[in-house]
Design a protein around this nucleic acid. Sequence first.
DNA 1: TTGACATGTAACCCTTTAGTTACATATAAT
DNA 2: ATTATATGTAACTAAAGGGTTACATGTCAA
Lengths: 117, 117
Amino acid sequence: METEHVFKAVADHHRRRLLDSLARADGQTLTELCSSMPMSRIGVMKHLDILEQAGLITTSRVGREKLHYLNPAPLQNVDSWLGGYRRLWNERMDRLEDLINRTQSSEQAEEQIDAEP
Amino acid sequence: METEHVFKAVADHHRRRLLDSLARADGQTLTELCSSMPMSRIGVMKHLDILEQAGLITTSRVGREKLHYLNPAPLQNVDSWLGGYRRLWNERMDRLEDLINRTQSSEQAEEQIDAEP
DNA sequence: TTGACATGTAACCCTTTAGTTACATATAAT
DNA sequence: ATTATATGTAACTAAAGGGTTACATGTCAA
């Protein structure tokens, strides 16, 4: 539930893969999720626990199997923190574009000079 | 440089605070950055090393002090991974709005019924 | 009711993380 | 030249992470 948990949860590529897998096919069982993971079932369980504690997945027991559902909402915390930086890298991009444009302009100017008889 | 390093670097609130601090005032020295951190100088140094290894900051030595500069570019990796989910939580939001609208509509309908003599 | 399947719990192991203290080095200022 | 300031390195510790094996439980199906 806390933002920090969301960041930590998402910091591991195995856990991101689990989320990605649920984004493609929601409501998978534990064993289904295991099938694409390079580790034991217990390992996957632990990762799922962390994701659940971060509020990124919810579960429901159906008979002998447990279904896992993606809840992307907490990712908005990450997104909003990132928001402040989106401006910054856009500004940098702008400055870079300016630089390129100015470089091209001066190259064109040089070409024109070269083209003179 | 690798995406995983960026996620790990950003997963710690102390390191996020350091980035936030540089976003406000770029080019701070180590001791300046330390002043707002609840830990020893060496602790801060280690966090800064991790941020630098992730490519999120660059440094330059000037005399006896080391200046730290923010480089937000690698955060785009996080942002683009997040991109796939932005769609999902918007859809959820839409469904929620629909639900609210439908609920309000039926409440209005009920009010109108109540208003009948 | 027995066997197969899906999940849960416990105990353990190794590595990494996050922090510390103590000491060393380089530069600025008096 | 000496002292104060800014940073660097080494060695250590406690706790958390990420994984394992072994065993237990609950549920479906024949």
